[in-house]
Computed example of a mutant assay.
Amino acid sequence: MNKSFENMFKNNHLSIGIFSPIESYSGNIPKMKNQTRLIQKVEEYGFSTIWTRDIPLNNPSFGDVGQMYDPFIYLIYLASCTNKISLAIGSLILPFRHPINVAKSINSLNNLSEGRFILGVATGDRPVEYKAHNVDFENRGEIFRESMKYIDTLVSFEFPTIRNKLGSITNEDLLPKSKFGKVPILVTGHSQQSVEWISKNSDGWIYYPQNSSIQQKRIENWKDELIKNNKEFKPFIQSLYIDLASEPELKPTPIHLGYRLGRNSLIELLKEQQSIGINHIIINLKYCRREAESVIDELGKYVLPLFTKQLGD
């Protein structure tokens, strides 16, 4: 694996990343102001990863278009503006892109960022986007499996022979080759697959926030599947929306996919998440009532050091 995987994911430890845009906003479309400076600040504080999403179309009923840019192009730009922070897509909608193009893009981005790239993949869940791409929504699980197999073969072997429903290769090779280790590929949600399949065919699992007792059972199931298939440690990753209050002791109250809370409550929540086996939390600031920069400063000064120190032990 590349160095991002080794730096971000360690058994029994928790690392913290952040979603782009680093911005609080209402509605679908962010302003995208001062993002480069904020991402450089995030890197200076020691956040492990900047995450970006693959949202091809503005669907008003969904309520969020993420950072808007093509994720590969945006991360290439961010690679040129940063030095050490890992760069991740969470997640690429795999059935909308041919696996040859995906494989070429991930190796290109990994080389240009000197091994800082991580790829999350998913099927997506919006029929309207499948219709727009002229891809069969009901068959998305099979397309996803075939894409994963195609990509893995392309990046793992020279001049491979590939024959599946997505295409055939008999005497061609993928360029560039990765100079910095294989790009980790993480599956988001179930993506129409079983936990057994995900444990065998991915490098980790990204899931949505859940009640801690429910999430703990899911993580225990994940670890059981890894043991059953003689697999080494593979990380469990979770997103988390926060509305960080100015009062450090404010107790958590639920918001969409997260909580409004003070920093001391956030610290306790993150410690609990680590204790149940979560290895990486991706913080999203969309619903924050405060300016994003002040939230980043507070997280960087008071929260992050408690967890980055552990990773360095």
Rank of each mutant, 00 (worst) to 15 (best):
S199E: 07
M8T: 05
K31L: 12
A245S: 15
L257A: 11
Q67H: 14
L14W: 02
S80A: 14
Q216T: 12
P30N: 05
N59S: 05
K3W: 03
T82V: 14
L174Q: 00
I255R: 01
G312S: 12
P184Q: 07
S108E: 03
D243R: 02
P248F: 06
G189R: 09
K41V: 03
V155G: 01
Y74H: 13
S20Y: 02
K3P: 05
E142C: 07
N28L: 04
M1C: 10
Y77Q: 11
S24P: 09
K286I: 10
Y287N: 14
N264Q: 12
M148G: 01
L311D: 00
Q193P: 09
Y207Q: 05
Y208Q: 13
Y207R: 04
D125F: 08
M32V: 13
K177G: 00
S191D: 11
I242D: 00
S4F: 09
L119S: 04
L94W: 02
F236N: 00
R218L: 14
K131W: 03
E142V: 14
K10I: 01
V187F: 02
S213E: 14
I162G: 02
T253H: 08
I73Q: 10
G46M: 04
C81A: 15
V303W: 00
E196V: 08
S26E: 15
F47C: 11
R263A: 07
G63M: 08
V128P: 01
W222C: 02
F9M: 05
I16F: 07
S113W: 03
I237S: 00
S194P: 05
D70Q: 09
A122T: 09
W51G: 03
N111W: 07
W222R: 02
G120N: 05
E232N: 10
S24A: 15
A88T: 13
L87P: 11
Y25T: 13
A245N: 12
M148L: 14
S20G: 01
T308S: 15
E249K: 13
S246D: 12
M32A: 10
N107T: 15
S4D: 09
I85D: 01
E129P: 07
F180S: 04
P235Q: 02
N11D: 12
T123F: 08
G167W: 03
L306Q: 10
I198D: 01
I151P: 02
P184T: 05
E232K: 06
Q40H: 02
I282G: 04
I282P: 08
Q273M: 13
L78S: 10
G46P: 11
G46K: 03
L166W: 00
N12C: 02
F96H: 08
K177D: 05
G90W: 00
P254Q: 06
S156C: 06
E232Y: 04
S239V: 00
S194W: 05
Q192C: 15
T49S: 13
N139M: 03
A245R: 03
S156P: 09
E114H: 13
G27D: 03
R140C: 10
D224M: 10
D54Q: 06
E232A: 11
I198T: 13
I22T: 08
Q192P: 03
N201M: 15
M32I: 15
N111D: 14
N264R: 14
S178E: 10
Y150F: 15
V65I: 15
F144E: 08
S265D: 12
I283P: 14
F137I: 13
I242P: 00
L269C: 09
D136M: 08
E23K: 06
